[in-house]
Design a protein around this nucleic acid. Structure first.
Lengths: 345, 345
DNA sequence: CTTGCGTTTGAAATCGATTTCTGTAATCGT
DNA sequence: ACGATTACAGAAATCGATTTCAAACGCAAG
């Protein structure tokens, strides 16, 4: 039999958290009734008022750990992303956070550095912490979600898809590659190269596919040496740009398929005295906090924040019991704007 | 009397999490013994082996919620910051995350948008989730930490200090302002203005104080109209820069006291055709992912990541029972580098 | 052979909120 | 006015791991 000592002479002001038992004692009711009041179940208004008064007086706030243990779920969700320092993921995280907060959830941030092991460890944590769900930007295309799925934890994938049959939110990567390339062609550049992401990464292949499409539609042969693969980071962009510039017949413009590689490419170009518009550059992905002249670099804006908001919304629906079959949402890119100027001659 | 049904024919493969009771049953010992094995307490090696085998077979992972409820603490800490999209805080968060992860903690990210209400709400959550501690970049100088402190939750403040007597990690803001200004003077600029942060914000006052110091030491009067206050964001930097340019006797250089305002100021200057080095610019804080020419803008690097690592380390010490009186750590800035070129004439 | 101390282990209490179960009181219909 | 429902509220079980308490056992010394 459990004993609850309810000492009224609480000397040590507020050092301990007040519990539902103390509230019950002060209000002259049972703990069960307190719980009912706090959860909006039917209770006579007399007792209900007494409970509310007592709770306010003790500035009672229910212990989430106990609640979570009993209800077998918490109001915490995990956001698992490759790199919190990449502004794209930051914007995405911001969208997730905003949406979750208005729904009363908190966000645990998990940084994987694109490492599958780290990712797996976070899945274990998510389960053992009884988290309500997971929003995931997969580190690899073979991410194993079974630790989560077998425990019925809802998962929404963002940006990249997984091998599993779950909700996914992506964007029109191929169209982004297409518009970026077309913008450069329209500006008068004729030899347009492409710095793609790592081989085998879905977004990378799609975006460079869009570049191919654009060239085909314009009846230009896609010179295979004009397609570089790099690692989606600044140094990758630098290396690829250097390689392109050293070709026997170098391009006069380039489509860079993510934001950080765009920074690298632009750095190299400006070091070489070929900053846009001397050399045409289109970047897929935003470069916040740069001081670039917006008329000389074409930027295809990606809906990073909206990706986050959408994923969060879908996850919340699942948490609330939505059982429809998995959906794939493809967000439209906010169109390529700021078309670059014509090369100086 | 509690009953634990231990069904051996677990048809629904892995749908439920296995518990310590199932491990105990499979190993032929009591739950208490399982707990002891898992926590490294003295147990005979025969039973210890049996437990470990059973745990492995069931791929048992202890329920953190139950553990947290019983032990009255968790392995989760909260990082409360004003803006997750600001690269300064991102780098700081990254430092915190890395340090915490190697110590086995997880990180809950809390975005306040510099709003005291939101901040207070997060404190409540931290307490009711039994979090082990809080790392805080205060939204205001009057942040009320009593909800945390009265419950003995360790708190470390970063970047800005609070009214409370707790651990703080800051950096040499005044020295940063001084070096930035000196670098501009050394490059030959003579009328150096300053775009400071909001009035009353500690870091803002210190950095602009450093600007004053530098001018005094160089025996130059600090023209009061050369000191602008702005809101630490891009638009603030823009507005302040425009104001400076419109003065009757405009400056020929400016010290900008944070990264985002630096972006705003540079945008305005390049729109006005006065990009550095035509107009001298020194920025306090890093501008990652920009394509600026590093020889024309002076950057005072701030130890953002290290701030995070240090704060996390201090918090972990407190969590582990360190009771020494509150410390204030002041990190050295990684010195101003990349001194700008002399104005064109 | 017995008393005594130390070690290992299990039974049960515990953390705090939720929820089922059950009993009592109040309400309704005829 | 009486039996049948319904509404309300408390006692106790529950979530799963930790920890206290006490029993049981082994071994050593007298």
């Amino acid at each position: 039999m459990r004993m609850h000592i309810l000492d009224s002479n609480n000397e040590s002001a507020g050092v301990t958290m007040s519990t539902i038992y103390e509230v019950a004692a002060k209000a002259g009711v049972s703990p069960a009734t307190v719980s009912r009041v706090l959860n909006g179940l039917k209770v006579s208004s007399a007792k209900s008022d007494a409970v509310r008064a007592a709770a306010a007086e003790l500035s009672f706030s229910p212990n989430k750990t106990a609640r979570s243990l009993r209800k077998q779920n918490s109001e915490v969700i995990a956001l698992v992303i490759p790199d919190i320092e990449n502004p794209f993921f930051t914007a995405l995280a911001r969208g997730v956070e905003d949406r979750l907060r208005e729904a009363g959830f908190s966000l645990v941030l998990c940084n994987t550095d694109d490492d599958t092991e780290t990712e797996a460890k976070y899945f274990e944590i998510a389960v053992s912490e009884n988290m309500a769900g997971v929003i995931l930007v997969p580190a690899a295309d073979h991410t194993d979600l079974s630790p989560l799925l077998s425990r019925n934890r809802p998962v929404v994938a963002v940006d990249r898809s997984t091998g599993h049959d779950i909700d996914v939110v992506t964007m029109e990567n191929r169209a982004a590659g297409l518009s970026a390339t077309r913008a450069l062609l329209a500006s008068g550049y004729s030899r347009v190269a492409c710095i793609a992401g790592p081989r085998g990464i879905e977004t990378a292949d799609d975006r460079s596919g869009g570049w191919q499409d654009a060239l085909n539609l314009a009846d230009r042969a896609a010179d295979p040496t004009y397609l570089c693969h790099a690692n989606y980071r600044v140094d990758g962009g630098r290396a690829a740009m250097l390689e392109l510039l050293s070709l026997a017949d170098p391009p006069d413009a380039v489509v860079v398929t993510n934001n950080l590689m765009g920074v690298g490419a632009l750095q190299v170009l400006s070091e070489a005295g070929m900053a846009p518009p001397a050399f045409g550059v289109a970047v897929i992905g935003d470069l916040p906090f740069t001081t670039l002249d917006p008329t000389s670099v074409t930027i295809v804006h990606l809906p990073a924040r909206n990706l986050g908001v959408t994923a969060a919304s879908m996850l919340i629906e699942r948490i609330n019991g939505d059982r429809q079959s998995p959906r794939t949402v493809v967000l439209r890119n906010e169109v390529a704007i700021a078309v670059g100027g014509v090369p100086t001659r």
